[in-house]
Design a protein around this nucleic acid. Structure first.
Lengths: 109, 109
DNA sequence: TCAGTATATGCGAAGATGCTAATATAACGG
DNA sequence: CCGTTATATTAGCATCTTCGCATATACTGA
């Protein structure tokens, strides 16, 4: 695989590599939301959220639609949602494994 | 979802957010490899590859096994491989969309 | 024990990222 | 046109990341 493809993937992962942006995508995975609605749900500075949205826009992970005064955001490709779902699964697997290890330690103590 | 979970996911994505580390994982997805083999396949500085491996180790994305002189690495959870496969699919979808746009521009020119 | 091979780690420079505060742009109602 | 609301952008600072270089550690065979 050419390095440019890997760079592309790395860029997408980089865009996902922030808790706030993950939160934004999780909210958006349930449907379109205005920037203001996101700001309220996240409870963060307006400028900060706007910057995170800019990152997601730059990588074309989200698209926006202007409606009068407001800007509505949505996830462009549902595959991104699947990636997040897989990560959830991954997290659970890791958690179970950790618990299993703790269990074993408990028994062999 | 609590923020700690999002932080966890973000940390994993951060670990994936580098072309070299993606290359490493792609090589490892075909099976266990020694650090030396990876260095050769990647054609990069030994110390650099070792640092990237350290990042992947820290997030427990890869595990290592010592065998005499060498250290063999492998992917701990195949879910990570699935995430990479999904990203490949995502890339193709994006590519197709871009080509489609170019096509349209061509026709309406 | 010593030389050689394989791998990891520490350090400093250069660049990227994320935050806050301030400011800019755009659309609306009056 | 004016003030207000919604959103984006800029600037400055602190922190993190990545790299190359040097060095450390660990194992092997003589």
């Amino acid at each position: 695989m050419p390095d440019s493809l890997r760079q592309f993937k790395a860029d997408i992962f980089q865009a996902l590599a922030h808790p706030t942006r993950i939160a934004i995508l999780e909210f958006l995975s349930e449907g379109e939301l205005s920037a203001g609605a996101l700001i309220e749900k996240l409870g963060m500075e307006q400028a900060n959220v706007s910057q995170h949205l800019a990152v997601l826009r730059a990588k074309q992970i989200v698209v926006n639609r202007k409606a009068g005064n407001q800007v509505f955001y949505s996830i462009r490709d549902p595959t991104i949602g699947k990636v997040l779902a897989l990560m959830r699964k991954y997290f659970h697997a890791q958690l179970k494994e950790t618990i299993g290890m703790l269990d074993e330690m408990e028994h062999t103590r």
